[in-house]
Amino acid sequence: MRLYLSSFRMGDDFDRLVEAVPRGAPVAVIANAVDFIAPEDRLAYARAVFDPVEHFRSFGLGPYDLDLREYFDRSGELEKALTDTRVVWANGGNAFLLMRAMVQSGLDRILRERVAAGTLIYGGWSAGSVVAGPSLRGIELMDDPGVVVDGYVPEPFWDGLGLVDYSIVPHFQSAHAEAQAAARTVAWMTEKGLSFRALRDGEAIIA
């Protein structure tokens, strides 16, 4: 397995990701897509609703929080920090903010190289899945590309990681607050003749 790209949270096939790595394998969990949300609100959500780090831990893996802001313009140090990591997982939020964090830290290059080499699995949900495609064009109908916080460059990056050769649209035809925006995005990509895959919540792309 190289990729596990879910529409919402861990998806219905999460056990396949768990089975693809050894028990206790280090998992870097990235939450930079929600850096625009106050830390206390993020902590309250993790405690009361869903905590990805605890979820990975409950399945016998070794998750840890990875804040990419600590590695902006320090890609060499990030590469060393990820040496033993077997899975990089990006949570949902704003895809453009997440892509900024990946580019500014150099994680985009590291992921392309290590996923291609088969030494790392990349996974994520919503924004974490969106950035795996070749482009973020059309995703501005779901996420605001102008959302930035301190330390981030103001201009959005429109190129994705290119780990798959099609765009990914999460929350399509789902009981999710972004379902209508997903439908608009699918209509726009269809009109433009773009290659894409629309995911319903629960579905995941596994490659």
Score class of each variant (00 low, 15 high):
residue 3 L to F: 08
residue 4 Y to K: 02
residue 4 Y to S: 02
residue 5 L to G: 05
residue 5 L to V: 10
residue 6 S to G: 07
residue 9 R to P: 01
residue 10 M to P: 00
residue 12 D to W: 07
residue 15 D to S: 13
residue 18 V to G: 06
residue 20 A to G: 04
residue 22 P to R: 07
residue 26 P to R: 12
residue 27 V to E: 01
residue 28 A to K: 00
residue 29 V to L: 08
residue 30 I to S: 01
residue 31 A to T: 12
residue 32 N to H: 08
residue 33 A to E: 04
residue 33 A to M: 07
residue 38 A to K: 12
residue 41 D to K: 14
residue 42 R to K: 13
residue 42 R to F: 07
residue 43 L to I: 09
residue 45 Y to S: 12
residue 45 Y to C: 07
residue 46 A to L: 10
residue 46 A to H: 07
residue 47 R to E: 15
residue 51 D to E: 11
residue 54 E to A: 15
residue 56 F to R: 02
residue 58 S to K: 12
residue 60 G to M: 11
residue 62 G to W: 03
residue 64 Y to F: 15
residue 67 D to E: 13
residue 69 R to H: 14
residue 73 D to L: 11
residue 73 D to F: 11
residue 74 R to S: 04
residue 79 E to G: 06
residue 81 A to K: 13
residue 83 T to W: 07
residue 83 T to E: 15
residue 86 R to P: 04
residue 87 V to P: 00
residue 87 V to R: 00
residue 91 N to F: 05
residue 91 N to P: 01
residue 96 F to R: 00
residue 96 F to I: 03
residue 100 R to C: 03
residue 101 A to I: 03
residue 101 A to E: 00
residue 105 S to P: 05
residue 105 S to K: 02
residue 106 G to Y: 08
residue 110 I to Y: 00
residue 113 E to S: 13
residue 114 R to I: 01
residue 116 A to P: 01
residue 116 A to D: 09
residue 116 A to S: 14
residue 122 Y to M: 04
residue 123 G to I: 04
residue 125 W to A: 02
residue 127 A to S: 12
residue 128 G to D: 06
residue 129 S to R: 00
residue 132 A to T: 02
residue 133 G to I: 06
residue 133 G to V: 07
residue 135 S to E: 11
residue 135 S to P: 05
residue 136 L to E: 05
residue 138 G to Q: 02
residue 140 E to V: 09
residue 140 E to W: 05
residue 141 L to H: 12
residue 142 M to E: 04
residue 148 V to Y: 00
residue 151 G to P: 02
residue 152 Y to C: 12
residue 157 F to A: 09
residue 158 W to S: 07
residue 159 D to A: 14
residue 161 L to N: 00
residue 162 G to A: 08
residue 163 L to Y: 00
residue 168 I to R: 00
residue 170 P to Y: 04
residue 171 H to V: 11
residue 173 Q to Y: 06
residue 175 A to P: 05
residue 175 A to G: 14
residue 177 A to S: 13
residue 178 E to L: 15
residue 179 A to S: 15
residue 181 A to T: 09
residue 181 A to K: 14
residue 182 A to R: 00
residue 182 A to G: 10
residue 185 T to C: 15
residue 189 M to A: 14
residue 193 G to V: 10
residue 194 L to H: 05
residue 195 S to Q: 12
residue 196 F to N: 02
residue 196 F to E: 01
residue 196 F to R: 07
residue 198 A to I: 06
residue 198 A to W: 03
residue 201 D to A: 11
residue 202 G to H: 04
residue 203 E to C: 04
residue 204 A to Y: 01
residue 204 A to Q: 03
residue 205 I to V: 12
residue 205 I to E: 01
residue 206 I to S: 01
residue 206 I to M: 12
